[in-house]
C-alpha cells in the first residue's frame, strides 16, 4: 500500500459508513415517520395493502387533540410533575452520590447494590401501596405524591450516574479545601459542585425522560385535575379505529415537547456523558 492510498481508502470507508448509517437511520425512524403519516390520514387510508403513501393530508386530528381535549392542561400537569421530579431528584441524588464517592469503596459497593435491588422490584406491585399511602394522606389527585414516587424510583439511577462523576473528581480537591478550612458542605458546594455540572445535566435529562413518560403511577395517583399526558393519551386509544388517527395525533403531540427539549439539550447530554458519567 502506498502512502497516497491510505487517505483515499479512509475517505472511501467514511463514505460507506455514512451511507450505511443513513439507510439505518431511515429504517430506524420508520415507526415514527409512519405514525406521523397516520396522524395526517383518515382512518380508512391508515391501514391498507399496499400502504397508502399518497393521500390528502388532514390536520383535523391534531386539531382535535390540541384544542378539543384539554391538551394544554395535561401538558401543564406533565411539566409540573417533570420539573418537580428533576428539581428534587438531582440535588438529593447528587448529595448522596457525592458522599458515596467519598466513603471507602467497600462500604459504597453494597449500598449501590442495595439501591439497584430496589430499582428492580416490579413497579406494578408498588402501585397499590402508593395508592393506599395517597388515600391515607389525602394526596390522591395532587402533584406531590406522584413527584415523590417518581423521585424515589429514579434515585438509584441518579445516584449511580452522579457517583461516577464524583469518583472522577480527585479527592485531593476536597482535601485541599479541607486544609483551607472548609466544612464538607462548603467543599462540596464551592469546589466540587461546579465540576459536576455536566453530570447533573445528564442526570436531569434522564429524570426528565422518566417523569415525563411514566404511566402507571401517574394513572393511579392522579385524578381529574392533575392527569399527566401519558394517562390522557391512553384514553385516545381503543375500541374504534376512527380514534386511531386520533391516537397517532395524540402520540405525536405528547412527543413534540420532549423532543424539542431533547434537541436543545442534546449536546449537553453527549458532553456530560463524555465528562465521565460512566467511569464508575
Amino acid at each position: 500500500m502506498s502512502a497516497a492510498d491510505a487517505p483515499n481508502r479512509r475517505r472511501r470507508d467514511t463514505w460507506l459508513i455514512f451511507i450505511a448509517l443513513s439507510v439505518f437511520t431511515v429504517i430506524n425512524l420508520m415507526p415514527l415517520i409512519w405514525a406521523v403519516l397516520t396522524s395526517l390520514k383518515d382512518p380508512r387510508d391508515a391501514f391498507t395493502i399496499p400502504p397508502t403513501i399518497i393521500f390528502e393530508p388532514t390536520l383535523e386530528y391534531h386539531r382535535q387533540v390540541w384544542f378539543e381535549n384539554d391538551f394544554f392542561v395535561y401538558l401543564k400537569n406533565s411539566l409540573i410533575v417533570s420539573a418537580g421530579t428533576v428539581l428534587i431528584s438531582v440535588p438529593f441524588g447528587s448529595l448522596a452520590a457525592y458522599a458515596l464517592s467519598r466513603i471507602p469503596r467497600r462500604s459504597a459497593g453494597p449500598i449501590l447494590s442495595a439501591l439497584f435491588t430496589i430499582r428492580m422490584f416490579p413497579h406494578m406491585l408498588l402501585a397499590i401501596p402508593f395508592f393506599v399511602m395517597g388515600t391515607f394522606l389525602n394526596l390522591i389527585d395532587s402533584y406531590i405524591l406522584l413527584i415523590l414516587a417518581l423521585v424515589a424510583i429514579n434515585q438509584p439511577f441518579t445516584i449511580w450516574l452522579m457517583h461516577g462523576f464524583f469518583l472522577d473528581i480527585p479527592r485531593d480537591l476536597d482535601e485541599a479545601a479541607a486544609i483551607d478550612g472548609c466544612t464538607s458542605w462548603q467543599a462540596f458546594r464551592i469546589v466540587i459542585l461546579p465540576l459536576a455540572r455536566p453530570g447533573m445535566t445528564v442526570a436531569a435529562l434522564f429524570s426528565l425522560l422518566l417523569s415525563y413518560n411514566e404511566f402507571l403511577f401517574a394513572l393511579v395517583l392522579t385524578g381529574t385535575s392533575t392527569k399527566t399526558l401519558p394517562v390522557a393519551i391512553a384514553s385516545f386509544g381503543g375500541e374504534d379505529i376512527s380514534s386511531w388517527s386520533l391516537s397517532a395525533a395524540g402520540a405525536i403531540g405528547i412527543m413534540l415537547p420532549i423532543v424539542v427539549v431533547m434537541l436543545l439539550l442534546q449536546r449537553y447530554l453527549v458532553r456530560g456523558l463524555t465528562a465521565g458519567a460512566v467511569k464508575g
Binding site: T25, L29, L209, N213, P230, A251, M255
Partner: peptide
C-alpha cells in the same frame, strides 16, 4: 436522529 426512539413515551412506542 438515532436517539429519537428513546424519547418516545413507552406506551406510545408500543402502539407505533
Amino acid at each position: 436522529l438515532l436517539f429519537l426512539p428513546h424519547i418516545v413515551t413507552p406506551v406510545v412506542a408500543a402502539l407505533f
